[in-house]
């Protein structure tokens, strides 16, 4: 069973859409991690994606890359993030999804990482530089620690590959909405809806959209044909600006059930 998947399904069962904000751990100092996570869960997010900074973040766009540089400059490491999360794990009520490049996990030790991450409240893991073909490096240890390994499906994935990724993905399917790296963009192709329906047809695991979602309209638009969204760069920017109103607005846009009754 996947706690992460259950959390998303219980949100969608109520008529709402899943909302997963991405934060860069250590951006502004690791002491901010606890208050940010507690406030986000208070706002009613479904889960929280916790980014771990890396020296060579090839899958990230400028916003998250810069956040990573700030986090690295403040001394953030995978080990310190896990220690910090563990220190208030009993207050964490939503599943955490760690996003880290592979090498810090290898340096930590795969088994030790999985065990420690589980204690820290991490229920899902995204490794942006590890495609399905290479995932046996970490998968057995993650399974033992009940951490869901989330697969990304991109617009460039062939139909055959899309099906394989979709079936292998645990927790949810991270559907990349654009070719390229993370970051805010203004327009989305109409073909996306068909793309998402195709992905969802392979599985009952929820499909979430990510990369470039930055407005309440995006959240609603994507919500109309998938199970929810992941918002990265926009959240990172808003946290730097301490603009919690913007974050609240995005989260509200995912509460479709509430919206319908006119609140």
């Amino acid at each position: 069973m996947s706690q992460l998947k259950d959390a998303i399904l219980s949100v969608t069962a109520s008529g709402d859409k899943a909302f997963i904000p991405y934060i860069m751990a250590g951006d502004g100092g690791l002491e901010k991690l606890k208050p940010i996570i507690l406030r986000l869960q208070e706002l009613g997010v479904t889960a929280i994606e916790v980014g771990i900074p890396f020296t060579d973040p090839v899958a990230d766009g400028p916003t998250i890359e810069r956040a990573g540089e700030r986090a690295l400059a403040s001394g953030t490491t995978l080990r310190k993030v896990i220690e910090t999360l563990t220190s208030f794990a009993d207050e964490i009520t939503v599943p955490l999804v760690a996003m880290t490049y592979l090498n810090p996990i290898l340096a930590y030790g795969v088994e030790q990482f999985a065990a420690d991450a589980s204690v820290a409240g991490i229920r899902g893991l995204i490794i942006p530089d590890m495609p399905l073909e290479e995932s046996e490096v970490v998968h057995p240890a993650l399974t033992a620690a009940e951490i869901s390994l989330v697969q990304l499906v991109s617009l460039t994935s062939t139909p055959e590959r899309m099906e394989r990724l979709t079936k292998a993905s645990e927790g949810f399917i991270y559907a990349v909405t654009v070719n390229g790296i993370t970051g805010a963009r203004s327009s989305f192709a109409n073909e996306l809806e068909a793309h998402f329906k195709k992905i969802q047809s392979y599985t009952d695991t929820p499909v979430l959209a990510g990369f470039g979602i930055s407005t309440a309209t995006h959240v609603k638009d994507f919500g109309s044909f998938c199970s929810g969204v992941i918002v990265g760069s926009k959240i990172v920017d808003s946290l730097v600006a301490e603009d919690w109103e913007a974050i609240e607005e995005l989260v509200k846009a995912s509460k479709l059930a509430a919206n319908e009754v006119g609140i």
Binding site: D129, M130, P131, E134, V137, L152, V153, T156, S157, T158
Partner: peptide, 26 residues
């Protein structure tokens, strides 16, 4: 680290890239 399918030289090599690149590499 010998689990990947493609492009191994002993335990080295592999295809540790974002999913978006996998189709292009193939």
């Amino acid at each position: 680290m010998t689990t990947g399918v493609k492009g191994r030289f002993g335990r080295f090599g592999g295809q540790f890239v974002p999913e978006t690149l996998m189709t292009a590499l193939q």
